[in-house]
Design a protein around this nucleic acid. Structure first.
Lengths: 215, 215
DNA sequence: TCAATAATCGAACAGACATTAGATTATTTT
DNA sequence: AAAATAATCTAATGTCTGTTCGATTATTGA
């Protein structure tokens, strides 16, 4: 057996989605390449056709998740809405996004540490291996930059609101961390079958946070 | 070499502290028994004199962390302070506790999932092994109950404050999750060398949360 | 249609790791 | 001071897992 017919062939994105799902449930180290492969009806070996190694696969999952959420939030942050409305919509987008794709949300919270633990190739490794590792480190750095940009979108809106007196003055850094902590935690406890929908949860959280910013 | 002199001998608690520290940095699966042992100058094998296995060690770390924080917060929750003051002090205790013992704080957030992943003994295992596993499952259930009690302490204070009109009415469940998310996140980003002390961070977070509850 | 390329597989490997067994030495109890 | 117990070690075991290799088959382009 080799190479499935085109209509059963697995795309890179299929793998990313399945991987996020498995990662969410088990965590990076407890997730085997075999587990991920099984989720898309492949063997572990086949994954190496799509990704250089396990670390690169994890990074790709996180990159995809981050881009998704950034694409939702950036337009709002750059819009000309009043500060309060802008922040409200950003909260909605982030929280609802987390509840809609719990796999990616939880991964973003839990698996980032595993990214940092990627081990260097041994000193006797080939030149190619060292290059692969350097590329990985580069991409990883870019990922962290993007993540900081994401946090910064919220920070900027809070600061702007304070400056134009629509928000009560707060410590921008701590307020932002407080807010993002509340959001991220949703990805940990949210269950689709729970009492409230993602939309309702987002509204309640936004209400609390905006209330604390009322001048 | 065997058995160190009494004054160099390692206690169960020494191991728990060191283990929490290593776990925080690497995560459960990436932490080897050897790593933990090395942190207290033992060999991996010696750890098995103190703990049945790796899962039991993790559980013991988490139990210790939870008890510490419960001991701080229960007396406040059961005091007769006004609701707002009570909640403020509970927030202080929780957040400051997280910044003082980041090892345990981060473990409580990140490693709980690993607890659930503990694998059953194979069907051909000895009776003793099955008993060990049953005991573990029992202790783990107790741990989760205690953790829910912890969350409930906050929930009760919020509800009480709403009922006696010191707090603006909010959805108690969501507000509590929002609050605990903000707290737990501190354990993720806090660095001792950062701009603000644990005390200052706690004050700013409490201010934000209490402000959102002002009637 | 035929060569090139893409996607997959089975098998095998080397390394790491949790755990056990048995020996050895320090402390405590009788 | 002898016996029992506690704490540690070294060595070995078995399993699991990421990764590589070479073969095999589907698709695509010339």
């Amino acid at each position: 057996m080799a190479r499935k017919p085109a209509d059963q062939s697995v795309s890179r994105e299929d793998i990313l989605l399945a991987a996020a799902d498995v990662l969410q449930r088990n965590g990076y180290d407890a997730t085997t390449m075999k587990d991920i492969a099984a989720a898309v009806n492949l063997t572990a070996a086949s994954l190496y056709h799509h990704f250089r190694n396990k670390d690169a696969l994890l990074l790709a999952v996180l990159e995809a998740g981050l881009e998704t959420v950034l694409n939702q939030i950036e337009p709002i942050a750059y819009s000309s809405l009043p500060s309060a409305e802008k922040l409200r919509q950003m909260i909605y987008a982030h929280v609802i996004g987390l509840t809609q794709n719990t796999a990616i949300g939880a991964s973003m919270v839990f698996e980032i540490r595993s990214l940092m633990g990627a081990k260097e190739p041994p000193t006797n490794a080939s030149i190619a291996d060292h290059q692969t590792y350097k590329d990985f480190v580069q991409r990883r750095a870019t990922f962290f930059e993007r993540r900081d940009q994401f946090e910064n979108l919220f920070r900027v809106v809070v600061r702007e609101g304070i400056e134009n007196h629509s928000f009560h003055p707060v410590d921008v850094g701590i307020f932002t961390k407080t807010m993002l902590g509340a959001h991220n935690w949703v990805g940990v406890w949210y269950k689709p079958e729970g009492r409230l929908s993602g939309q309702q949860i987002a509204e309640l959280i936004a209400e609390t946070l905006l209330r604390s910013l009322k001048p």
